[in-house]
């Protein structure tokens, strides 16, 4: 087991803790297709870690491995110093990993409030009988969790739409509701799959602010995949660069930016 006490201090003075999750030699194959080839990296407590790379590099597959949706063909996933065996996605959720999706995966038939409340399902324990009568534990629990959820609603500034069915909302707000649902679970590790995709500049600014604030305020560790390089370079503490399923760079943004392999992958290399 790796030493959990080591850490580092970021340029803006945030203390980053020890290793929260470690990916060791992860390989993921679908039949003959190799999506991820022997990748290792770690995610430290409290940091914002970006995964970037050209289309088809295997970023989303990597996120799916972290969230437990895919079981890696080879390699080990260590979380909080314990090796994670093959698990069902809902079991991983209970360990404190939450995520948002590239193509929004909200529950369209439910209101914003109900959607966010689903983020707290793993914490709600009242029995069926109590729920059926809406009395005792069920009602107390409902109100207690509602208070937490309202705090997140305030934080993300979506008070005015809390009773609107999600299906009626515009794209940018849906992204925000999805973030709220992930936050409601009070995750230790939050995975964001292209949180800014399809947004205009203003929406991107809002979303960046929310990501920085929630990292700062709740101490949530964040792993994000993003194509907007400006956003990635500004937000993240360390960046993993992937190309064709391999890791071609890993380190602080400015280091990655000057890495010759990364520049080649993004701009292409002259073949002679």
């Amino acid at each position: 087991m790796k030493d959990m006490s080591e850490g580092y201090v970021t340029a803006d003075g945030r203390q980053i803790g020890g290793v929260l999750m470690e990916m060791k030699n992860i390989t993921l194959r679908f039949g003959g297709v190799v999506a991820i080839k022997d990748i290792s990296f770690d995610i430290r407590d409290g940091e914002i870690r970006a995964i970037i790379g050209p289309n088809g590099a295997g970023k989303s597959s990597m996120l799916n491995v972290i969230s437990g949706f895919y079981v890696p063909t080879e390699g080990e996933v260590w979380f909080k110093g314990v090796r994670r065996g093959p698990m069902k996605p809902y079991q991983v959720a209970r360990l404190g990993v939450a995520r948002t999706f590239q193509n929004i995966a909200l529950f369209d038939g439910m209101t914003v409030l109900d959607n966010i409340m689903t983020g707290r399902l793993t914490r709600m324990k009242a029995g069926l009988l109590s729920q059926a009568l809406w009395y005792g534990a069920a009602e107390r629990e409902e109100i207690a969790h509602r208070e937490k959820v309202e705090r997140i609603i305030d934080f993300l500034e979506i008070q005015n739409i809390r009773k609107t069915p999600v299906g009626r909302l515009p794209y940018g707000l849906k992204k925000r509701v999805e973030l709220a649902r992930a936050l409601a679970a009070e995750p230790k590790l939050l995975l964001l799959d292209e949180p800014m995709a399809g947004m205009n500049v203003e929406e991107k600014e809002d979303m960046s602010r929310f990501i920085l604030d929630l990292n700062d305020e709740f101490g949530t560790t964040i792993v994000l995949i993003e194509h907007d390089m400006g956003v990635v370079m500004d937000l993240s503490d360390r960046v993993v660069v992937m190309d064709y399923g391999r890791k071609i760079g890993d380190g602080p943004p400015e280091e990655v930016r000057n890495n010759q392999d990364v520049i080649d992958a993004y701009l292409g290399v002259a073949h002679d």
């Binding site: 809902y90 909200l106 369209d108 038939g109 439910m110 399902l121 729920q131």
Partner: peptide, 28 residues
């Protein structure tokens, strides 16, 4: 009462998008 509480939300989550439901911790 069942449909407005935890159980109902689990049911509706499975109805609207079962994969997402499982990832937020609903046991299908």
């Amino acid at each position: 009462n069942l449909t407005r509480g935890t159980t109902g939300r689990k049911w509706m989550a499975i109805r609207d998008m079962d994969i997402a439901a499982e990832i937020i911790g609903v046991n299908p």
